[in-house]
Amino acid sequence: MDLFGNSNDWADKLQPIIKNYSGRKHPLEYQNLYQLLVMVVLSAQDSDANINTIAPLLFDAYPNMESLAASTADALIPYISKVRNFGTKTNWLTEIAKTIQKDSNIPLTMDGLTALKGIGRKSANVIMREAKMPAVGIIADLHVIRVAPRIGLITETKDGIKAEKQLIQVLPQEIWGEIGMAISFLGREICRPKPKCIECPIKEICLYYSKNK
């Protein structure tokens, strides 16, 4: 699986994208941890752009976890009805809010976050990265799942958990916190479904590029 050497080799080879994207804020346009958590839950199987569009009215109505905890599913639905699977997500958010009650109670550990409805490892990794918590995993969103096999980092899979496990095996922990979002940003901007290889800063170490140039 490690086609270009050991984990330290990978850390060196991936430095250009880590340098380019390190510390860049996630595309979800959140203002605080509460908004981030809600938007991450809503963004599952939907686009960040769509969630950004509905967020202002949603957070005007529900500015914090306490206001969300006092709501009902019926009252919340009109604010998120344009989100994919809004019915299920309404139930997730109302249950999360009733569990947490206050913004200050939002957990920032993998176990604490994944114990909440609608938050899996990918979402928890995003929240922890944005909150600048030490990484215990690697973000493996749909962009990472597409791009990482192209580079030669992992074998192809459509399963985010399997992708993350492979990435954890091949990459040193000191880059876990940034490499997931770095690959994701690369996938959003350059390594699209139809990749713009000529613009890629890591094309020379990329398996796909070496086969297709």
Rank of each mutant, 00 (worst) to 15 (best):
G5Y: 07
L58N: 01
S81E: 12
K122N: 10
C206N: 10
L116D: 05
W10K: 09
L58T: 01
V38A: 07
P63E: 10
E164R: 12
V136D: 12
N212V: 13
D9E: 13
L68K: 09
M133C: 08
Q169F: 00
Q15E: 15
A115K: 12
L33H: 03
S22D: 10
Y62Q: 02
E189D: 14
K162Q: 14
D12C: 06
G87W: 03
L167W: 04
G160A: 11
S123P: 00
Q31W: 00
T94L: 15
I54W: 05
A131W: 01
Q169W: 00
L167E: 04
E66S: 14
Y209P: 02
E189P: 00
S22T: 06
N105V: 03
D74A: 15
A69E: 10
E156T: 11
A115P: 02
Y208T: 08
Y62L: 12
Y21C: 10
E156M: 02
K158A: 15
G180H: 04
I183Y: 06
F86V: 08
A49Q: 14
L36F: 13
T157V: 10
Q169L: 09
Y34N: 07
L153T: 09
Q35G: 10
N52R: 07
I183W: 06
I151M: 03
V147W: 01
N50M: 14
I54R: 03
V147P: 02
Q101K: 15
G180M: 09
D159P: 02
N91G: 13
R188E: 08
Q31N: 15
P193R: 09
S123W: 00
D103F: 07
G137E: 03
C197V: 12
N64C: 13
E164V: 05
K132Q: 13
R121A: 01
S22E: 13
I205V: 15
I205K: 11
K165L: 12
L14F: 09
G112T: 06
S22N: 12
R146D: 05
A97V: 01
Y79T: 01
L93N: 06
G87F: 10
R146T: 08
G152E: 06
I18M: 12
